[in-house]
Every structure is written in C-alpha cells, then in structure tokens.
C-alpha cells in the first residue's frame, strides 16, 4: 500500500513539476516580450487573444510547422542529441528543489520535493555542467564554423562562470553544514534568509546565474553580428525551439534555486502564526513562486537594461574579479564562523 502510495504521489509530483516548469517557461517567453515592450514604451504582442495570452501557443505551433533541416555534412545522431540534451538537463534540475513545506493528506506526510537527496546542491551543479554538452554537441555536430565558434564561446563562458558560482555557494554551505537543499531551506526559517548573511555571495551567484543561462548581459553565444546565430545557426524547427525553450526553463530553475538557497525558499516572516499545516504548505508554495517570479522578472529587467559584455571583458570579470571575490567571501565567512565558535 505505502509503496503504491509513494509511487503514485511521486508520479503526480514529477508530472506537476515538469508541467509547471514547461508552462512557466512558455509564458516566460510572453512575459519577456511584453516586458521588453513595456520597458521600451511599447505594448508588446497583444494580437493573439486578450493581452496576447495565446502568443506562446502560436510561437510553438509555428516552430512545429517549420521545415526541419538537418545539414548533409552534420553528424545526424549528435545533431539531434544536442537540443535533446539541453532540454533534458534543463528539466532535470528541478528534482531537488523543495517547493513547499510538507503536506498532510490521508494520514500521510507528503513532502513537496521530488527527491531529497543529501547532495542536492552537488546534483544541481552536476546537471548544470551537463548543460554545457547540449550546447557543445549541437555546435560541433552542425559542421559549421560559426556554430562551432559559438559553441566554444558558450561552453568556455559557462565553464568559467561555474567556478565562481560554486565558490560563491561554498560560503553558504559552510554556514548550513549541509548539501541538502531541503535542509538549507529549513535553516532559513522565518526571515532568517541567507542573503542577509551572504550579500556578496548572492551578488556573485546572481551574476554567474546570468552567465550560466546565457542571458544578457552575457548572451554572447547568440551573436548575430559576428557569429551569424551562434551555436544554433544550423538549427531549425522545433530543435531550435528546444534550445530557446531550454534557456527559459534554465531561467526558471535558476530563479527557483536562488530563491531557495538565498531567499529562504518557501519561508516567509510570521509563518509560525499559522497553525494549520496544509494551509502553511499552500501559502509556502505561493510565497516560493512569488519569489521565483520576482527573480524571473529581474532576469528580464537586467536583459532589457544592460548592453552586452565584450568577450574579453566577460572573461576578465569571471576569472579576475568574481573568482577572487568569492574566495575572499569564503575567507570572511570562515573567519566569522570561527569567531562565533570561540
């Protein structure tokens, strides 16, 4: 019985998380275009349905009906594997994120997290590193110099910023003494959020998150001026759609991860006043999603504010500024912990 129950609710949870992240990624494309319009004193797309709410469906439908071109000289297996891998890794990261406090239904405690693995943070980093392969394989398999250069640029950018990202997170891990995302979130009960202890770490992390998701001001892999289209120059139809879509899923997942690790996840002030556990769980999920939407908004806000970095500036920022800063942050955190334990 309990095994069946376990499998049942995990299946429902997995399907829901997957569906919600696809849905949010879909509507993030609309939000992005709307916001771009608003920030430039325009209206954005508003023709498909009221306020343009069917625009993502139209875009998706259009991509499906476009001609699917696989170049003759490309490696067909890898050419198809590239976007699949990008999409796969984008969807996988959300498995370790705790979406809310435990629910109590039918006499069972149901955690709103797909897998509470004790190395959750490492899992996220591992999967994010795999994301580089989607870009790299796609660019290489296209057998096109522009794609290859775009892929090289994208992967070197992602690998460089992963270092600073990991180092900035180490300071948080030193405080939490745990790699489980759930435990990190639980330690930030109420308003005891990590961002108040690690403002520098958060700043480094969010900059690296922009670079990891290949978004402005670090959207160098897609560079019309010098690389035609970047690593997806040869892609068309839904395979191109997968690459573009994976970017939005990555944005959603990294927003969720930032909200969980630095902004207390589902915790909110005065949460102890609510006695009903299920109500607290629902409120927690709502609060968590509000935080996620705020971060998605910040991603877009930054994109439509800042111009893009030059490639050497990008590398200089990553290696010469962010990595030393995060090492200093680790030393400061270590010193503070030592003083506290004296």
């Amino acid at each position: 019985m309990s095994t069946i129950f376990f499998l049942g609710y995990k299946t429902i949870l997995v399907t829901m998380v997957w569906g919600i992240s696809l849905l949010i990624a879909m509507y993030a494309t609309l939000m992005e275009r709307k916001l771009a319009g608003f920030l430039q004193d325009r209206l954005g797309p508003d023709r498909a349905g009221p306020f343009g709410i069917f625009q993502p469906l139209m875009d998706g439908g259009k991509l499906f009906f476009k001609e699917e071109i696989i170049p003759n000289d490309s490696n067909k297996f890898l050419f198809i594997l590239g976007p699949s891998l990008a999409m796969f890794t984008a969807c996988m990261t959300s498995a370790v994120i705790p979406w809310g406090p435990d629910l109590n239904l039918f006499g069972h405690t149901i955690p709103l997290q797909i897998a509470d693995i004790n190395i959750g943070v490492l899992f996220v980093f591992g999967v994010v590193s795999l994301g580089v392969y989607g870009v790299m394989i796609g660019g290489w398999a296209s057998n096109n110099k522009y794609s290859l250069l775009g892929a090289v640029r994208a992967s070197s950018q992602m690998i460089s910023y992963e270092l600073a990202m990991g180092l900035s997170l180490i300071a948080v891990l030193m405080m939490s003494q745990s790699l489980s995302v759930k435990e990190i979130v639980q330690q930030q009960h109420g308003i005891n959020w990590n961002v108040f202890y690690q403002p520098l770490g958060f700043l480094i992390f969010i900059i690296c998150a922009f670079a990891e998701t290949n978004r402005a001001p670090f959207d160098l892999p897609e560079c019309e001026a010098e690389l035609v289209g970047g690593y997806h120059t040869e892609y068309s139809s839904m395979k191109l759609g997968f690459y573009l879509f994976a970017e939005y899923i990555n944005m959603f997942v990294s927003s969720a991860f930032m909200a969980a690790v630095f902004f207390g996840g589902y915790n909110f002030p005065f949460m102890d006043k609510i006695a009903n556990g299920n109500l607290l769980a629902i409120l927690g999920v709502a609060v968590f999603f509000a935080k996620i939407f705020f971060f998605i908004f910040v991603f877009m806000w930054v994109r439509w504010t800042l111009p893009r970095f030059r490639y050497d500036q990008l590398m200089k920022l990553g290696w010469q500024i962010l990595i030393p800063l995060s090492v200093i942050n680790i030393l400061l955190t270590g010193g503070a912990i030592m003083l506290k334990n004296l």
Partner: peptide
C-alpha cells in the same frame, strides 16, 4: 559598475509605468 547598473535599472523600471506611445 554596480552603482551605474542599478541607476540604469531604475531608469528602465520607470519606463514600465510610462504611457505607451503605441497606437493599436
């Protein structure tokens, strides 16, 4: 850079609430 970046972000967020010039 950061003060300038935040300054730029304040400018763009102000445009979010401005009257739009588009005519439908």
């Amino acid at each position: 850079y950061l003060p300038a970046i935040f300054g730029g972000m304040v400018i763009t967020i102000k445009h979010l609430f401005k009257k739009k010039v588009t005519i439908r």
